[in-house]
């Protein structure tokens, strides 16, 4: 399953908190023209560095597909950052 939502939360030293919700699918759709360019650039880079382009792209896709469930919480003193991928 591809990631659906990335949630980022943070707390600054002064105690102010923030939240950011990134719905992945709509963002991917909006940025799809740029993604096509990025894929073409990736294929060219793979050919330049002697890597199998389509297998590498498939590997990147698998990496993207495996992201849901990842969670990173880091808290130091008064500051904190939390990123969760669902």
């Amino acid at each position: 399953m591809i990631p659906q939502l990335v949630t980022a939360r943070w707390r600054r030293k002064d105690g102010r908190t923030g939240r950011l919700f990134l719905p992945v699918v709509p963002i991917v759709i909006v940025l799809s023209p740029l993604l096509v360019l990025a894929v073409i650039g990736g294929i060219i880079a793979c050919l330049m560095f002697d890597m199998p382009p389509f297998r590498t792209l498939a590997g990147v896709g698998r990496l993207f597909w495996a992201l849901p469930g990842a969670r990173f919480d880091i808290e130091q003193g008064r500051t904190a950052v939390s990123v969760s991928i669902r």
Partner: peptide
């Protein structure tokens, strides 16, 4: 730096995918 807490949860699937990708490193 005071108290530091780190809590990281990484899907094992992600590690496997990363390892497979690492094979293609020139």
């Amino acid at each position: 730096s005071g108290e530091t807490k780190v809590n990281i949860r990484v899907p094992l699937k992600l590690l496997r995918a990363g390892m497979r990708l690492a094979v293609f490193v020139p």
